[in-house]
Amino acid sequence: METDPTPPPPDAASDTGTTRVCQNHEGAQVPCYDETFGWFNDQDRCYWRLLSPQPDGSNPIWEGNYPDGAIYSVTCGPFPAGSGGGWAWSPTPPPGFGDVGITPAQMAQRAVDSMRLTGPAIHLTITADDTGLVGMPVWLWTDVTPTTWGPNSATASVPGLSVTANARATQIAWDMGDGHTQVCAGPGTPYAPGAVESPTCDYVYERSSAGQPGDAYTVTATTTWQVDWAGGGASGSLTLTRTSTATVRIGELQVLVNG
């Protein structure tokens, strides 16, 4: 019997999403490699086995492409008996041949990429044209949108594999530029005119920003995102961070004393 020269994959019994998972047309999980039929093709969900030796170049199966590409034996379900298929020419190894098909974890990353998660949409009580005061609370908050705080959800799919990822922000770490960081578990509260302290997230500077580049502190806000995903017979989680920056000027309160 002709054999596939590519060695079989390692045992995937402990799959956590980084190992490839193969599913047939009915969504049932099947081996990604079979000693008789070869490698599972992620696109057509058939098994492909490289013929060895290859048919003679005069064989019409080459469709005039000899010696480019290769001829494969194709077997399409149901399995293990196999039915349908035949010989087929392909210019490159089919998706999944040699266990190089996309994994659920890789599809989860595609889903996350499509969300376009960003750092916070930074808001401070002190605008770029104003100067705050030492000792006065600076409110810190972000717009709550699918990309700046969540929740957010996306699905990535290829034939035979679909993975859905759900993302939510868990905290924002505000590096205030003076050597201190304020960590807030929520998105913060928009400033209410006349209020002094934020009910959820603020910071008090203890010294002026004079002498800093541009006489301003650089505020760096980093959101931590938790992403849970599932699909293709696997599931997992990711922790991501996204960062934004802004500047704030802080001055000393000047008190005039009449002599």
Rank of each mutant, 00 (worst) to 15 (best):
G119T: 04
M115T: 01
L133P: 03
L124G: 02
D175I: 04
H123I: 01
S198Y: 09
Q226Y: 01
S209L: 05
P104Y: 13
G236N: 08
V204Q: 13
L256M: 06
Y47E: 07
G82I: 02
T142M: 09
N152T: 07
Q23A: 12
P31H: 14
A128L: 04
A81H: 10
C32R: 14
P190G: 07
T127W: 00
N152H: 03
R249E: 05
D143F: 07
T75Q: 12
G232A: 06
P137R: 11
D99K: 10
A234T: 03
G214T: 01
E35I: 11
I250H: 03
P8Y: 09
P146C: 08
G179E: 04
M176F: 03
R110M: 13
S235L: 05
F79E: 02
A221P: 12
T164K: 09
S162P: 12
V227E: 00
V204W: 01
G214A: 01
T127S: 03
G69A: 11
H180I: 00
P53R: 00
W174G: 11
A28K: 14
G119Y: 04
D143M: 08
P55W: 02
T155Q: 15
T145D: 08
V100M: 12
A156S: 15
G135T: 13
L51R: 09
Q43E: 15
R110L: 15
A70K: 14
P60S: 13
T18C: 06
G86K: 07
H25R: 12
G194L: 04
V112L: 02
L50T: 04
A13H: 14
C46F: 08
L50I: 04
D202Q: 04
W87M: 14
Y66C: 10
Y66M: 03
N258A: 04
T200S: 12
P199S: 10
L51P: 04
T148D: 12
R20V: 14
S208H: 05
C76Y: 13
W225D: 02
D68H: 08
T148G: 12
T75M: 13
I122T: 02
